[in-house]
């Protein structure tokens, strides 16, 4: 509860940051960590903070490689393959985490990119990827990853 209040306050303070992230300045020109996006509590808010509320297109071109059951939520290996052209940014999210945005990968005009990392998951959740490519914003959701031991706090 405390954390929630703190975040709400922080959201107020970083209102300016949201303005910047919403497209007044291109994200690539901003070498700063997107604080506002990492502080959001829903995937929609995180996507809006990153991509300025652009319409998201569901696509099959984004595929995930992740375990069906993650026994330890502290270390879940995930791979995201994006079969699109002119990719600028890939955002990886776990909707059920306290802060859904896990990481963003920024590049310039790459095609068919694969990124992989190991993430923490609080509880059973699918993965969501939001990709900015060729001026459009695409999204895809993975199948659910079952987590038996959570990896957030405790």
């Amino acid at each position: 509860m405390k954390r929630r209040q703190f975040n709400l306050k922080l959201a107020g303070i970083t209102g300016l940051g949201v303005g910047i992230a919403s497209g007044l300045i291109p994200i690539s020109a901003l070498a700063n960590w997107p604080t506002a996006a990492f502080d959001t509590e829903t995937t929609e808010d995180a996507a809006n903070a990153l991509f300025g509320g652009a319409e998201m297109i569901e696509t099959d071109a984004i595929t995930f490689k992740a375990p069906d059951i993650a026994e330890n939520g502290r270390v879940v290996p995930v791979n995201v393959n994006v079969g699109l052209n002119s990719i600028e940014e890939i955002a990886l999210m776990v909707p059920e985490n306290p802060a859904p945005l896990v990481s963003t990968f920024v590049m310039s005009n790459q095609s068919n990119v694969a990124v992989g990392t190991r993430i923490k998951m609080g509880k059973t959740s699918p993965l969501v990827a939001v990709v900015k490519a060729d001026g459009k914003v695409y999204t895809a959701t993975s199948k659910e990853i079952k987590v038996t031991i959570g990896g957030c706090g405790g």
């Binding site: 997107p34 270390v75 802060a99 963003t104 990968f105 993430i119 957030c152």
Partner: peptide, 10 residues
């Protein structure tokens, strides 16, 4: 290439 990491990276 740049990766912005949040605390949810292992």
């Amino acid at each position: 290439f740049r990766c912005n990491m949040g605390p949810a990276i292992s």
